[in-house]
Each structure stands twice: as structure tokens, then as C-alpha cells.
Amino acid sequence: MRDINRVMEREIAKGSCPLKLDHIEFRDYSYQEITSKEKLLEVLSYLLRIGDFKQYAGKTILNNVYMDLRGKKPVFKRTKTAMERNNIFATIRRYAKKVKPQYNGDVYLETVRCYFDMPQENLEKCRYTYQGNETYAFLMSNKYIMALYTHCLVARKEAAMQDMQVESFTEKEYEMVRLENVGEVLFQVLLLDNVCSDDGRIYSEYVSIYLIGG
């Protein structure tokens, strides 16, 4: 991570916003069961901002980092066009068909909030109104965004080794927090196109779709 942090410092010097990950949080919204193939495709369409959800594909969608597959190996990348996101959708759909989920409690959507820190003077410059809602837009280079994604990915893996306590979680949900019995990661995305504010704290969502067991 020292190399990643050095890259981020260089990109800040070049003009990237000094947005940095502070911590991630699990809450009672973190887990939702996906109960059918149709629901899985609907969730993928929403996360990729395509099909019935293409109206959510604003200019800041370029900041999102999506999981794609190269052979059997996951790769993480940003996209520039709806065609690229449609291609990812087709790839993940084929992959899901190959691993044959049963939709009987074996497919789950995990949503983790990634809370960020940024100097207040910089933050005020990034505030704007989009479709009537107050949000933020951050000018960041590709290298900086990918480094920020790496921090979120590492924080999620580290959370699996911590004694996480969320009152409403079931034992099965705790197993997913610990990444126990997770057979496949069907999809992941860091949604930086919709950065929100919670009591003055800014966050985005890091979303994963898990196949349990196997």
C-alpha cells in the first residue's frame, strides 16, 4: 500500500482531489438476498446504469470502478461508454449461468459504505446540485481513482478479520462479513457517481454480489 499511497500523492500534486478513504461501515441495509435470475439481471442493470436504469448514467458515471472478467480472472476498470457497460453485463450474465446459482438463499447483494475524508476547503469546491439533489463531484485522475478503489478493496478484506458487531445481523450475514462460505464473487463495483452525505460525512457504496457455498 505504500506504493499505492505514493501514486496518490503524485496525482494530488498534479491536481486530483485529495479524497481519501477513512473507513468502511456495515449496517442493517448491507445484505439483501437475490431470489431469482430476473432479479440478478435487474440488479446488474441498475449497478451498470443500463437498460431501464440508463437515466442514472450521468457524467460522473465515468468515476465508477467495475469488475469485469478476462477469462476466469477478475479485472477492475472504469468505462467510458454504455457499450462497455453492456459488454460487462453480458460477461457477468454468462458467468452467472456457468456457476449455476439456485436462488434458494445462495445469492446475496452486499452493500458497504465507504466513508471518505477531505479537507473542508477542498470539499466546498466540489459541491453541486444534480437533478435537484445536492451531491459532490470530484476531479480525479484514472490512477487516483484506481488507487482509491484499491484502498476500498483492502479495507473490505481487512473487515473480514475484525470482530464486526451489527445488532440486526444473522449468523449467515456475519459469515458473509467474514467472507466465510463465499463460493464466488459474481460482481463488484465502487459507485463514485453518486457520492452522498450522512451527517456531514461523505460516502459512496462498494457493492458485491456473492454466490454462497460451493
Rank of each mutant, 00 (worst) to 15 (best):
Y66G: 00
R78F: 05
Y31C: 03
L109P: 02
R49F: 01
S141Q: 11
P74S: 06
M67G: 01
G132A: 06
G58R: 09
Y66P: 02
K73H: 13
D106M: 01
L48P: 02
Y31F: 09
S36Q: 02
C114P: 00
P119F: 14
L109W: 06
K97T: 12
K54A: 13
L123T: 05
N87E: 15
E134W: 13
E38A: 15
A57H: 03
K80F: 05
L69E: 05
K77S: 12
I92H: 07
A137R: 13
E110F: 02
E38S: 10
M67R: 09
K77R: 14
K97N: 07
Y66D: 00
L123E: 03
F53G: 03
Q32L: 15
K100T: 01
G132N: 07
E124L: 09
F89K: 10
G58H: 09
M67K: 05
Y56M: 10
K39T: 10
K72A: 01
K72R: 11
Y31I: 01
V75G: 08
I50T: 09
L69F: 14
F116C: 08
T91V: 14
L139V: 15
S45F: 10
Y95D: 07
N104S: 12
R70K: 15
E110A: 05
L44E: 05
V112Q: 02
N133A: 14
K39E: 01
N122E: 14
T81C: 03
R70V: 11
K125E: 13
Y46M: 09
V107A: 04
I34C: 04
Y66R: 07
K98S: 04
K125L: 12
C126H: 07
I50N: 05
L109N: 07
E42P: 05
T60H: 14
N133V: 14
G51Y: 11
N104L: 05
L40V: 08
Q32C: 09
N86F: 13
G132D: 03
Y130R: 15
T79Q: 08
E124M: 10
L47C: 06
Y115H: 12
Q131F: 11
T91P: 06
K77I: 10
K59L: 15
R85C: 01
M67Q: 12
V43E: 09
L47D: 03
C114M: 08
S36N: 04
E134N: 10
Y108R: 04
T79R: 05
F53V: 00
Q55N: 14
Y136H: 07
I92K: 02
K100Y: 06
K125V: 04
P101T: 09
Y103C: 03
L47G: 04
V112H: 03
V99A: 06
D52K: 15
L47V: 00
K125P: 09
S45E: 15
